[in-house]
Amino acid sequence: MLTRDELTRYKRQIAVFGEEGQLKLKQARVFLAGAGGLGSTIATYLAVAGIGRLRIADNDVVALDNLNRQILHWDSDVGRRKPESAAAKLRSLNADIEVEIVPETIHEDNVAEMVAGLDMIVDGMDNFEARYVLNRVALARQIPFFHGAIHGFYGQATTIIPGKTACLRCIFPEAPPTVAPPVVGVTAGVIGCVQATEVLKYVLGMGQLLENRLLMWDGLGCRLDEVPLEKNPDCKDCGQEGG
C-alpha cells in the first residue's frame, strides 16, 4: 500500500507505470555492489525511484581523487567510509526507503550472506574478480545480475538472467589485467543510468531488457551500439546449470 506522501512523491512516474508499478518498486530488494562511480549513479536513481530496500556493500574510504565521478561523496566526506557517506545522502534524498550498508569487501566467503533476502544484484565494482564472485552467487541464487563497466569515455552494460542469458563468464572468460582505469565522471553517469533503468524495467516487467546484448557506449563519438551475445554451453560458471 502506498502512503499519501508516496502517491505525491512519485506522481509523475506513477503516470508512466501506475500505482501497481510503484508498489512493485517499493517491494523490491536490491543489492548494490560498490558505492563508487557507477554505484553512486545507480543508488541515486534507484533511491529516488522508490526502490524499497537498497543494500550497499563497499569497504573503501572516500578519497579526494574519487570526487570527479563518485557523486554521492562530497569534499566533506574525504576519509569517511563510502557506504556510510552514500547512505547519508540517499536517506536525505528519500527517507521513505530503507538503506542498509555492508562495510566489507565482497569475496566468495561472505557474498551469500550479503545478498541473502534480496532479489537482484547490481554491479558497481571496479574489478573482474569481484564481478565473477557476484556472477556466481547470482547464478546460484537464480537472481538477475546487472553488469556495467567503464573506462574513460567508454562504457558497457548487459543484463544477466540466470538460465536464460549468457553469464558474465560466458561473455568475458578471463579477467583483464587490472590497473586503475582512467574514468570521466559522465561515463559513470551514463552507464549507471542504463543499469538503473534495467533494474526498474525488470521490477516493473516493462520493455526489453539488455538480455544477450552488450550495450557499448562511446562518449567521444556519442554513439550507442550493441553486440549480440551467446551463452557458452561449456561455461565453467553457468554451463552445468542446464539453462
Binding site: G124, F128, A149, I150, F172, V227
Partner: peptide, 29 residues
C-alpha cells in the same frame, strides 16, 4: 557472440559471413 578465448583463441577458423567484434576490456566502476 562468443569470446575467441572460448573458441580456440586466434587459431579459430572463420566462416563466410562471420561477424567479428573488437572492443576494449572495460573494468572500471
Amino acid at each position: 557472440g562468443r569470446h575467441i578465448q572460448l573458441v580456440d583463441e586466434t587459431h579459430s577458423e572463420l566462416e563466410d559471413g562471420d561477424v567479428i567484434t573488437v572492443f576494449p576490456a572495460l573494468f572500471g566502476g
